[in-house]
Measured scan of single mutants.
Amino acid sequence: INASIYDEIQQEMKRAKVSQALFAKVAATKSQGWLCELLRWKEDPSPENRTLWENLSMIRRFLSLPQPERDAIY
């Protein structure tokens, strides 16, 4: 996982035409506020920051699903 995940998140929300609230809920079981802060600060993903790493790993797993599967989840 690297910093490009933040751009991938924004691209996916645009592509699927979903809100931050919906993306946060389905991709990371988090709130819109959490995702907003995540995208604002764009912390460097590092395994040392375990909570951030685990949350980004969950999002990465969601983004790695085939597009039709992600669309069905939304």
Rank of each mutant, 00 (worst) to 15 (best):
47 P>W: 06
23 F>H: 03
62 F>C: 04
64 S>V: 07
65 L>D: 03
33 G>V: 11
6 Y>V: 04
12 E>P: 01
3 A>H: 11
39 L>M: 11
54 E>M: 12
38 L>W: 01
25 K>N: 09
36 C>I: 13
68 P>N: 07
40 R>P: 00
28 A>D: 02
4 S>L: 11
64 S>E: 09
69 E>V: 07
19 S>Y: 02
72 A>V: 12
3 A>F: 15
50 R>H: 15
19 S>I: 04
27 A>L: 02
47 P>C: 08
36 C>M: 14
54 E>Q: 12
61 R>V: 07
17 K>M: 09
14 K>Y: 14
18 V>T: 03
47 P>A: 07
3 A>M: 14
20 Q>A: 15
71 D>R: 01
35 L>S: 03
72 A>G: 08
74 Y>T: 03
70 R>K: 04
18 V>Q: 03
38 L>A: 08
74 Y>V: 04
33 G>P: 12
31 S>G: 12
70 R>L: 02
67 Q>C: 08
55 N>D: 13
36 C>K: 08
27 A>T: 09
70 R>A: 02
6 Y>K: 03
17 K>N: 10
21 A>H: 15
40 R>C: 06
42 K>A: 09
13 M>D: 02
24 A>G: 04
10 Q>G: 09
45 P>L: 00
29 T>C: 11
23 F>T: 06
36 C>S: 13
3 A>S: 15
22 L>M: 11
3 A>Q: 14
63 L>E: 04
14 K>P: 02
22 L>V: 11
36 C>F: 10
47 P>T: 08
16 A>K: 08
7 D>N: 11
49 N>K: 03
63 L>V: 01
60 R>N: 13
6 Y>D: 08
54 E>S: 12
50 R>I: 14
60 R>D: 13
22 L>C: 06
33 G>S: 14
46 S>Y: 12
42 K>H: 08
18 V>N: 05
33 G>C: 07
20 Q>V: 09
61 R>Q: 11
15 R>M: 02
13 M>C: 05
24 A>R: 01
57 S>T: 10
16 A>G: 11
9 I>Q: 02
42 K>Q: 11
73 I>M: 12
19 S>T: 10
52 L>R: 04
63 L>G: 00
5 I>P: 00
69 E>Q: 10
32 Q>M: 07
39 L>I: 06
25 K>W: 08
72 A>W: 06
61 R>H: 14
73 I>P: 01
39 L>N: 00
15 R>F: 02
67 Q>P: 02
59 I>K: 10
50 R>Y: 09
5 I>M: 07
35 L>T: 03
63 L>K: 00
61 R>S: 07
32 Q>R: 15
71 D>E: 11
60 R>W: 04
9 I>K: 04
66 P>V: 05
22 L>S: 09
33 G>Q: 07
11 Q>P: 04
66 P>I: 01
29 T>R: 13
3 A>I: 15
3 A>K: 09
65 L>A: 05
38 L>V: 12
71 D>T: 02
45 P>G: 04
34 W>I: 05
49 N>R: 08
28 A>H: 03
35 L>D: 03
10 Q>S: 11
52 L>A: 11
28 A>C: 14
72 A>K: 10
13 M>K: 04
68 P>S: 13
11 Q>V: 13
41 W>M: 07
67 Q>T: 14
25 K>M: 04
17 K>C: 08
30 K>G: 08
55 N>W: 05
28 A>R: 00
36 C>N: 15
48 E>V: 12
53 W>T: 07
11 Q>L: 14
72 A>R: 15
73 I>F: 12
62 F>R: 01
17 K>Q: 11
41 W>L: 14
29 T>A: 10
60 R>A: 09
10 Q>Y: 10
28 A>W: 02
64 S>W: 08
20 Q>T: 13
36 C>T: 15
20 Q>M: 11
46 S>M: 11
15 R>C: 02
16 A>F: 09
8 E>R: 06
52 L>C: 04
70 R>V: 00
51 T>P: 11
72 A>D: 14
55 N>T: 11
7 D>V: 12
28 A>E: 01
9 I>L: 03
14 K>I: 13
17 K>F: 07
48 E>K: 15
28 A>T: 10
8 E>D: 15
49 N>T: 01
45 P>N: 02
46 S>F: 11
11 Q>R: 10
31 S>C: 05
31 S>L: 03
57 S>G: 14
13 M>I: 13
73 I>T: 10
19 S>L: 00
61 R>G: 11
11 Q>M: 15
57 S>Q: 13
48 E>N: 14
6 Y>I: 05
28 A>F: 09
65 L>R: 12
33 G>E: 11
47 P>M: 14
45 P>C: 08
48 E>L: 11
60 R>I: 06
70 R>I: 00
12 E>A: 03
60 R>Y: 09
23 F>W: 01
10 Q>T: 06
66 P>S: 06
36 C>D: 15
66 P>N: 04
45 P>W: 00
54 E>A: 11
51 T>A: 10
4 S>N: 12
54 E>N: 12
